[in-house]
Design a protein around this nucleic acid. Structure first.
Lengths: 342, 342
DNA sequence: TTCAAATATGCAACCGATTGCATATTTTTT
DNA sequence: AAAAAATATGCAATCGGTTGCATATTTGAA
């Protein structure tokens, strides 16, 4: 292990003090321009690498942001992360990423770990079954900024970066109505997660707009996993003709796809018998036949915005403190699964 | 911002020296057991948090491992990461994760960033088009251990953790042969990545075992993305009856699925006309109809093993230095896409 | 009782960058 | 030419934990 070059080494070589070197490396304007140049050149020449630990210790900042997500294995999350990485690295921040695997327990433990690692700020998208924020409280107590993204918590004081779930669901439902569907079911997730509550509201309001009475029996709450989607499909298959929906709006693509697979295996034609709309524009939406109509929203953008926000908060930007909800736009991608009219 | 409790605060409260506190917090056996207990209790009571930066500065270790992966958006990668996270956090290591998005350029820049962040060790799965390891050289030069996983580099001196690609491909091909297929095509990735080269070898040897002559025209190299898979399907559709394969073995599930979708849309029946086997056991393999026969391998395990290895290397374990290839087992999951015999 | 061995704790010098304040040097003003 | 202002650089303390070596205390053996 060859030893590292420090500012003291540079100082000795250039006959300057370590203080001057430190300032030079940060291009301080207090220094003579030519001195700064000499320092930079020498640093390059000797292979100097900045030591974050010494610097963090002194500054009492870690220059690290923590990210907790339910799962990494969706195209959406990957895009969010890529966006976050992009902005964070430009601003010189590291990211520590962990998955809650949709389990509140694990989320708590991850939050705790990050707290102990002294991250400067936290970005979090909540697990399905998280019902309180006690695990986030330590951050609030120490004034460590927290930004929620995608899955936020109702009534929380922190900034959230979300999409217009209400609008998106409204558009999805209205689209099905325009296609002539009248018995539209909605497969949703845990309604304490406001993204799902908002989508439900959009669904309801679209029905209302078309004067279709809302029927509670047409809304099914689930965890949106493979098993639940299949069960949901089986429940549809068990219904008699009159009861059966002519369309289903699912709160994510994966559940829509599993549901479609099961229905198709039992002879249901899509979209003729039942039309489908999903949510997320996951890769699977283009693997199923017919391709799934879905809501597309810009993961990258969400990531970028969330990190920018957090960094502004860290910089103490007062404007950001007052903004506590940033809503990004999404769009409806119409594909075969919902096209009844040709 | 309330101020942090340090070992000096604890020392003052307990009338001990900071040195003793430091040892106590690490449960040093050099200390009286009751003293350790008192220290731990007091630390808990006062809300002490260990300061990594001070500690890293002193120890000249960052306790951080860097991970570079092509993409995070597969079930496999997510599992690998979960496994890595598990072991790493147990050993007190942080992870910094970044994606190369299959681009060698980005991989280089990520490696460079990690080098400057002074990670203690690197875990890397190479991008499709990485053809040299110059970007890893700085790690080798400073004796920073590097472990390759899944996608390794031929002839590299570092430890690699991989699956038995050869065996898996052999099993997959043999299975298709047992089902009566004789014209088996193989859609593969870049053959300079040894995982693909190994799979090709397994495919060849299985054919050989059944005395089927190998035909170079039956092997198609691609990037395994949606476009390439669709093109491949179109090529099959363009073949005349005699030429058409009766089975396809794809080097990943995603390409198999896209290919199947395209073929099905043109009336090809699966598995009757063409049987399919994929690789990875991605979630999509159970979304397509018929469900895709595929190779399942334990992502979690790969992650765990890779990190354990790296940590042993960091501990200077000589045994590990000599082991430079760890091969994990995988298994064939037979599903509808390849079952011709009922 | 005395001395050696074992056990328990403290001292103090690191690790490397940062920054308020002081000092030295140069430029500008009167 | 002297004083004031502006510019350039250095001093030294600080961030908090670690560890080799020294010292103090207890235990056990002779």
């Amino acid at each position: 292990m060859q030893k590292e070059v420090t500012i003291y080494d540079l100082a000795r070589e250039l006959n300057l003090s370590p203080a001057t070197i430190s300032r030079g490396l940060k291009k301080s304007t207090a220094l003579n321009k030519s001195t700064v140049q000499r320092i930079l050149a020498k640093a390059e020449e000797m292979g100097y690498r900045h030591n974050n630990f010494a610097s963090n210790l002194r500054n009492k900042r870690t220059k690290t942001l923590g990210i907790i997500v339910p799962r990494l294995n969706s195209y959406f999350m990957t895009s969010v992360l890529a966006g976050m990485e992009d902005v964070a690295s430009k601003e010189g921040y590291d990211l520590i990423i962990s998955q809650s695997l949709e389990k509140s327990e694990l989320e708590k433990s991850n939050a705790n770990t990050m707290f102990n690692k002294r991250i400067d700020g936290l970005l979090i998208s909540l697990a399905y079954n998280t019902t309180d924020l006690t695990h986030i409280q330590p951050f609030f107590d120490r004034q460590i900024p927290v930004v929620f993204f995608d899955r936020s918590f109702p009534g929380v004081e922190s900034t959230s970066v979300v999409i217009d779930n209400y609008q998106a669901a409204y558009k999805a439902t209205a689209h099905l109505l325009e296609q002539g569907c009248r018995k539209i079911m909605h497969l949703t997730g845990d309604l304490t997660r406001d993204i799902y509550a908002d989508r439900l509201k959009g669904y309801k309001d679209a029905l209302d707009e078309y004067n279709i009475p809302f029927d509670q029996k047409r809304v099914v709450t689930s965890t949106l996993n493979e098993q639940d989607a299949t069960n949901f499909a089986n429940a549809i298959l068990a219904m008699d003709r009159a009861q059966r929906p002519d369309a289903v709006f699912c709160a994510n693509d994966v559940s829509a796809v599993y549901c479609m697979v099961q229905l198709k295996q039992h002879g249901i034609r899509i979209p003729d018998d039942i039309a489908f709309v999903g949510f997320n524009n996951d890769a699977v939406s283009r693997m199923i036949e017919p391709n799934l109509t879905t809501i597309d929203y810009p993961g990258n953008k969400i990531g970028e915005v969330a990190v920018s926000c957090l960094i502004n908060l860290l910089k103490g930007d007062e404007n950001v403190k007052n903004t506590n909800r940033i809503i990004l736009h999404s769009s409806l991608l119409v594909r075969g699964s919902s096209l009844k009219k040709k």
